[in-house]
Amino acid sequence: MSEPLLDVRDLDVFLPTRSGPVHVLDGVSFSVDAARTTGLIGESGSGKTMAAMAIIGLLPAGAVTRGQLWWRSEDLLAVSSRRRRQVRGREIAMIFQDPLASLNPGQTVGRQVTEIPRRDGMGRAELARTATHLLDRVGIPDPAQRTGNYPHQFSGGQRQRAMTALALAGQPQLILADEPTTALDVTVQARILDLLRHLRDTEHTAMLLVSHDLRVMAHVADDLVVMYAGRVCERGPAQAVLREPRHPYTKALVASVPAVRARTAIADPLPGSPADPAHRPAGCAFHPRCPLAVLRCRVERPTVREVAPGRWTACHLAEADGLPDAAEVRP
């Protein structure tokens, strides 16, 4: 495999709260390869959105970040804030969850999608052409007319398309998409996912797709990073991870979604509630909900290790050929 486009190494993020800093990302490592879609999945509170915000450098005020964010040959956590800003929009762009809130209600869509070229001093006529072209690329019908519309005159799906056009405007090599379909109707979701897949195939833009929805991942992700309580528990090629999980949490996630596992019609909901990063259990953070947990899981934090080529997992019990059955494990 070639050098990754983005390499996140041992990323720690602390967020300030009333009761002191909370360790929301704890030693997170993963990479995003060029022209591939990497899915970042986990329940709410797993830190997946924080990871995306840390990469683009838009964490809330007061957040403390440690670790390394290798973007090609530079560590984004070590560069100047000026260089950091240059990367935003032009090298790494972001699509936010709620397209209505994320578009400026007081500006035309055309103006918003062409803000980056306008800052570069592009002329009016050229800007108008660029705006039309961008809206056309994301599949908005009648793009020349729509550039003069305001966000409230767009439908939900069109707004997310406009948001995608906005992300494409700076010709980034990597797009971070934070739950891009969550705020949309189910019928519209599939079309936006098709658009994202189409962009990967035609424009070869790498994408980091953040979602809690395994069906979305099964649809578009090439690689998968599974997060739990601010830590990575498993990563590997998406199809392999979904077919043969090497971490009990991934396995439980897959079992909770009937559409992903063809054999079971009935979903098997995950017992218990997600761990709060502010009160992360000792050892493996998943052990209180894990059907396989042994004594070691309660005391020793598992490292992320490669159990099979390309398959990384943070589970003491994982083997090259998979996870043991619950019956085989005696605490």
């Binding site: 683009i56 838009l58 800003r85 240059q86 990367v87 935003r88 929009g89 032009r90 762009a93 972001m94 936010f96 709620d98 809130a101 994320s102 578009l103 400026n104 209600p105 918003q112 803000e115 980056i116 800052r119 948001m163 906005l166 405007a169 700076g170």
Partner: peptide, 17 residues
């Protein structure tokens, strides 16, 4: 605090812009 401000930041604008 609004979302579109975060979007504007994600375009690489300075805080003043």
């Amino acid at each position: 605090q609004d979302g579109y401000v975060q979007t504007a930041r994600s375009k690489g604008l300075t805080e003043r812009e």
